[in-house]
Design a protein around this nucleic acid. Structure first.
Lengths: 508, 508
DNA sequence: TTATACACGTGAAAC
DNA sequence: TGTTTCACGTGTATA
């Protein structure tokens, strides 16, 4: 950073000695937020840093600046007599910090009251080059010329331009033969100062948050800011792509039978019910916890459930019915059950489409799993070679009736009696499944089979009430897609949304 | 977007009809890169859009502007006779698009040659308010006043200010009794125009890449850009934190016996040897592919290796020796073998420290695994109840001697003869291990045991030559940490860095 | 009408 | 030295 090249900066932030240090911070730092907050305090800067420094302007100009480095003290005296005008240009050595609200507040009143200052030529004399009609045409006042001559000759050789001060200090409305009313010019000047200051403030703020600035001039700050924004955007885009890719490849996340109905591919941890300690509330109340995950062309599904005899066989049979090939399975004594469906065929569909297809399909599959595990649905009786007791160790109706008072307590009791499991033990089942058909067809069958099976479930849990409408839409849309019509209120999912804690942490 | 409030924009980008549309794009779009590239083409804008529009300035002013909306045609004639000056302000209705390089290039020459233009009052008359010494003091030329009066009166009631044109058109060095040489003023004006244009260009570019701009004035653009940068920074920061967290939780990644020696926690896929198709070169040449992964307080290690009898038992025995408790294991017929070490104890160390510890520890463990699988090390004989033949189906020396001509061909042959596996089949072993001691102690034992075992290995593969020095450092530092001294050249790892492809894709 | 925004040319200062 | 950058006050246009 070149301090020597920051006049517009030094003019405005000298009262903040930490600013330059902040500039050196490479990346975003909350320390800079003050500056930014100040700069962004609003479009009007009266109530912010700008107003402070700005309102101090009229006073500051003759006082601080002249007191520091101005060489034309005599001029200055006359100017200060004029009252409100500031020097033509802030010298780089002038310190804004010395001019604060104390002086400013007092003088500002004068500055804001143009009538005090309205004397002699001031407005017209300050005309810009094009406003020559002010200088020559508009105003014909004689005093303008000598006074400015004086100021010019006085400050000509000096470093500081008291010249301009003289010009400004000169009469205010003397020759405003132009379009502007007498007092408006001064207001205009002040407003323009304010605008400039606001812009400078924002330049400062911008330069504070853009790292690696070598040059501090406005053009460079803008240019570097542009580059930096582009760079940040690209970075964010890359990261979002990465995240999206990862998200797309790990799409469906269903736990505790709360089938997610979000239509995009984002994961949805927010629906997890977590106990006070962030872990599952304990016992069977949190199960089943079902997660489906798509990676590359494989789909991994984990089912975290109570250790139960026959569950693995039933789930695998269900998978096979869906024209998926079980490649491998694994069951571990851990708080989860994973089912990995690997599809080795080459698809012509994009990964995103595949994900969408599988997303929708496996959401249905999750429902099936949930119902297989807990629901008292008629179609469960159709499981070949299985009775409800094989699945749960008790009848489904019993399980359903006791769900609210501890979903699996009776099951645990039964299991314990058989010595199959401890109350805190769970199954971790890992199934590797391979589809033998194209996924679109397989998913079609999946949907058809799901609707067929779902058609026989007449009941629903009271806990599902609040999510009913959303799921109803989802259900209807899907069922309409395969021509089976809506499932209706009485056909909605019946898996138990067992209250209590679920695990929010995702197993990646 | 308010088009009515974009004068600084309309002045500069009217020749790009797509600009406003670009502004409406919500996020970064490559379409805007042209503008940005233009704006950032360099600090000098002569060779870019700016130079084009700028150099056309002198000509444009009287030609295009006057032709469009200027009301003072007579003045204009005299002004254009003056040659180089532009109107005081571009009218909003003026079209920059109509003024391009054709006119500009011709007139620019005149503009750049001040002598042609140097007549009458021009410089001084255009003085700013403070430069009253120009208007009154510096120049005393009579023609100035009437001419500007004329221009003023003429343009006073009009919308356009031919006034200023007249002022500029006035003589160049007539009354430059000030500090500035006669011809310099015009250059200064041009330079200042150039600077302003550059700034405006960058404002345009900035506004083009900042999405959601409602107001297009400079202050708002700056303010919104600041907000946007902050927002982007926070977003990047959040994403980086997320990535870092994920990286920390998935730290060690070792494949194909290439023990990673990077001391930070970043993953290191770059050392994977990948075949031409991005997949492993095929066959046993790519194995073992070992990956260690830390998630929460669990460590997942996958070992992707040839299906071999006894490997699982040996690896698990090795894990048990390291005071880790195998919680569960799973073996799948997939291209990998995973070993999951779950540590359920509560640690007082931070996750990062834990990762570092486990990183170092499991790097050693990976070596052990590699040596168990392939190396002909003396300590392998100490495996209780196992012979080399149990591991590989042949002696280690045989394996070593044949490694370069297809590392596992002989093993495959043997396996095939036994009917245990197909040549393309692999093991996927999943081991869930639980430590019964504090990890620090366990890791200490791990190191001690590793060094004890590594101490007896006198040979190394020629393929390891190029990586020798780097690993030597790592080895010495680790051995020094536990007080056993450096292992020296003859104690370096011996696992076969079997050439060929490794799988670069990470299994997440 | 008032208030705001902008480009302008300028002198001064930093480089 | 010349070049570049800046803030200034202004006229004008817009809302």
């Amino acid at each position: 950073m070149e301090f020597a090249n920051v006049r517009w900066l030094s003019d405005l932030v000298m009262d903040d000695p930490t600013f330059f240090h902040q500039c050196e911070m490479s990346t975003l730092d909350q320390l800079t937020s003050e500056h930014i907050a100040v700069a962004l305090a609003g479009n009007d800067f009266q109530a912010s840093f700008s107003s402070e420094s700005y309102t101090s302007y009229p006073d500051f100009a003759p006082a601080a600046a002249a007191g520091n480095t101005f060489s034309c003290s005599s001029m200055e005296a006359s100017q200060t007599g004029g009252g409100v005008d500031r020097p033509a240009k802030l010298p780089k050595t002038s310190s804004w910090s010395s001019c604060n609200a104390e002086q400013a507040s007092a003088v500002v009143a004068d500055a804001s009251s143009p009538n005090i200052l309205s004397f002699g030529r001031q407005n017209g004399a300050a005309g810009n080059p094009r406003s020559g009609y002010h200088q020559l045409g508009g105003f014909v006042g004689a005093p303008v010329k000598p006074k400015e001559e004086v100021s010019f000759s006085l400050s000509h050789g000096t470093k500081r331009s008291c010249v301009s001060m003289a010009a400004e200090v000169g009469g205010r409305r003397a020759n405003t033969g132009s379009t502007r009313p007498p007092s408006h010019s001064q207001d205009h000047i002040i407003a323009e100062r304010k605008r400039r200051e606001k812009l400078s403030q924002r330049f400062i703020a911008l330069s504070a948050i853009v790292p690696g600035l070598k040059k501090m001039d406005k053009a460079s700050v803008l240019g570097d800011a542009i580059k930096y924004v582009k760079q940040l955007q690209e970075r964010v885009k890359a990261m979002e792509d990465e995240t999206a890719k990862r998200t797309v490849e790990s799409v469906v996340l269903v736990k505790r039978s709360h089938v997610q109905v979000d239509d995009d591919t984002s994961s949805c941890d927010e629906n997890f019910d977590v106990g006070p300690d962030g872990r599952p509330a304990g016992g069977g109340e949190t199960f089943p916890e079902i997660e489906a995950k798509l990676s590359d062309r494989s789909v991994l599904v984990r089912v975290h459930c109570e250790k139960r005899k026959g569950v693995l066989v039933k789930v695998l049979a269900e998978v096979e019915k869906l024209h998926l090939t079980v490649v491998s399975t694994s069951v571990m004594p851990f708080a989860g059950s994973a089912l990995d469906v690997t599809m080795d065929e080459e698809f012509s569909m994009t990964v995103k489409d595949l994900v969408r297809q599988l997303n929708s399909a496996f959401r249905r599959f999750m429902e099936i799993l949930a119902q297989v595990l807990y629901a008292d649905l008629p179609f469960l009786k159709s499981f070949k070679g299985s009775k409800r007791e094989d699945l749960f160790g008790s009848t489904a109706s019993q399980a359903h009736s006791r769900r609210k008072e501890g979903q699996f307590s009776h099951l645990h009791q039964k299991e314990k009696e058989r010595g199959n499991t401890r109350s805190s033990e769970t199954d971790l089942g890992v199934f590797r499944v391979k589809v033998s058909r194209k996924p679109r067809e397989a998913l079609g069958d999946l949907r058809a089979g799901l609707h067929l099976r779902l058609g026989g479930s007449p009941q629903r849990d009271a806990e599902e009430e609040e999510r009913g409408s959303r799921r109803r839409e989802e259900e209807c849309s899907v069922s309409g897609a395969d021509g089976q019509g809506g499932l209706g209120e009485n056909k909605r999912r019946r898996y138990a949304a067992s209250g209590g804690g679920g695990r929010g942490r995702r197993v990646t």
